[in-house]
């Protein structure tokens, strides 16, 4: 297991009037090579949780293990952890700062201590992987559209070749096509490189389409976890904590409730279509 959380508790501003427990006794594992989604509404602790994965926040209590090593040990190499666990923050395009796209993506690998030539090669590879075109590499990042800027920012993390890549709402504020482009790109990269992806998302539809497994956070605790199918089978419990399920899952439940003999559990449009066609054919 690359990352294990063992009874992690995190308190913001302890011993002050603003004290707030953001994570409360959280335990779970990130499995090697999986596409893991983390969902939960604003304030549920999901961003705080992923920031523990590469040691940006230090747990008030409990332990985080990276490949079996306690990352809070005195002799643990935090810098290496941060290269191996890459983080793409919310609105990452706000962090672009170099004069050209290529230079911006080179910054990470150069900082890792790679030679200029090797860093450039990695930047090239990462930018192509995110779907940027070679003729855009020497443009200023500020000449690009919002969606393109975000690809460049993601490439900047990919160029460091992390084995785990964490993305905190990478599609926020993008239009539907831009959103699908980024997620398709991530899925393709995940399949090609086999690295582990942790995706923080608000969209149940996206989670249903892309993730292997999901963790639902509520009030600083793990509410439930499992494959999207397992989790969305409990749509009523999710709605109790202010989260939804994909609209097709809810539809299938409604159909069943109104007396139709249909198989529930579909989480994508494709699956719902198949289940409904099956039901209709049976009745013909």
């Amino acid at each position: 297991m690359p990352i294990i959380f063992d009874h992690v508790t995190y308190t913001y501003a302890p011993e002050t009037a603003y004290k707030k427990v953001a994570l409360n006794d959280v335990s779970f594992e990130v499995k090697e090579g999986e596409f893991l989604a983390v969902v939960g509404h604003t304030g549920s602790g999901k961003s705080t949780m992923v920031q523990h994965m590469n040691g940006l926040e230090k747990a008030t209590e409990g332990h985080v293990y990276f490949h079996g090593q306690d990352i809070y040990d005195k002799d643990f190499d935090m810098k290496e952890l941060r290269t191996r666990v890459g983080m793409v923050f919310q609105y990452p395009e706000h962090q672009l700062f170099e004069t050209t796209v290529l230079a911006d993506v080179c910054f990470g690998p150069l900082n890792q201590g790679l030679e200029k030539k090797e860093a450039t090669a990695r930047a090239y590879e990462a930018l192509l992987m995110t779907g940027m075109k070679e003729e855009q590499f020497l443009l200023s990042p500020f000449e690009l559209s919002g969606g393109q800027k975000r690809r460049v920012a993601i490439a900047g993390v990919l160029a460091m070749k992390p084995e785990v890549i964490i993305l905190d709402e990478p599609t926020a504020g993008l239009d539907p096509k831009g959103r699908d482009d980024i997620l398709d790109m991530l899925k393709e990269m995940h399949e090609k490189t086999g690295n582990t992806v942790v995706l923080v998302s608000h969209s149940m539809e996206d989670v249903a389409t892309y993730a292997d497994r999901m963790i639902v956070m509520n009030k600083g605790q793990v509410f439930c976890q499992g494959t999207p199918k397992e989790v969305f089978a409990h749509a009523d419990e999710l709605s109790k904590i202010g989260l939804g399920a994909p609209s097709v899952s809810l539809l299938m439940d409604d159909l069943k409730a109104s007396g139709m003999n249909v198989e529930t559990g579909a989480i994508t449009v494709e699956e719902a279509k198949d289940a409904i066609l099956k039901m209709l054919n049976k009745n013909v």
């Binding site: 539907p176 096509k177 994909p246 609209s247 097709v248 539809l251 449009v269 719902a272 279509k273 409904i276």
Partner: peptide, 13 residues
């Protein structure tokens, strides 16, 4: 480049 709501898409399919 716009997507339709899931239910509309399902009905269309």
């Amino acid at each position: 480049r716009l997507s339709v709501p899931q239910i509309t898409k399902l009905a269309y399919e």
